[in-house]
Amino acid sequence: MKEQLMKAMQHNQLVDLMYISQSGEITKRRVKLIKNFGDRFQAFCFTKHAKRTFITDNVLAVMPVLRKERVVI
């Protein structure tokens, strides 16, 4: 899992995460990785529209975003 996150950060790629919070809630987050701190990493979360710190061990799945979704208004 950690290798996938590092690769996404090196290529400046967006990823979709399945993440389990400290309270046990599972969420899907689209993030852009910013910095790695060993067992944690910082990313911009497009779900919360803010920088967040995630625990690497709480990441259940990583899926690279192959194309950006466009919204028609």
Rank of each mutant, 00 (worst) to 15 (best):
A50V: 03
T47M: 14
S23H: 03
V31T: 01
R29K: 09
T27L: 02
I20Y: 02
H49E: 15
G38R: 03
S21A: 07
A61I: 01
L17M: 10
A43G: 08
F37E: 11
E25G: 00
G24R: 10
V65N: 06
H11Y: 05
M9R: 15
R40N: 13
Y19D: 08
Q13S: 11
A61K: 15
D39I: 08
V31N: 01
R52I: 02
M18L: 06
G24D: 04
I55H: 10
A61L: 10
R30W: 02
Q42R: 15
F54S: 08
F41I: 07
A61W: 05
Q13K: 13
E25D: 07
Q42M: 13
L17N: 07
K48A: 09
N36E: 11
R30G: 03
V31F: 02
N36V: 02
V65I: 14
L60F: 04
K32A: 08
V15Y: 07
L17P: 14
F37A: 02
D16H: 10
H49G: 06
E25H: 09
F37V: 00
C45L: 00
V15S: 11
F54P: 09
M9G: 01
K51V: 15
H49N: 15
H11K: 12
K32R: 14
T27V: 07
I20N: 01
D57F: 06
I55A: 12
I20F: 02
A50Y: 03
V31Y: 05
S21H: 01
K32W: 06
F54G: 05
F46H: 07
Q42N: 07
R30E: 09
Y19F: 10
Q22A: 13
F37H: 15
L60E: 13
K32V: 09
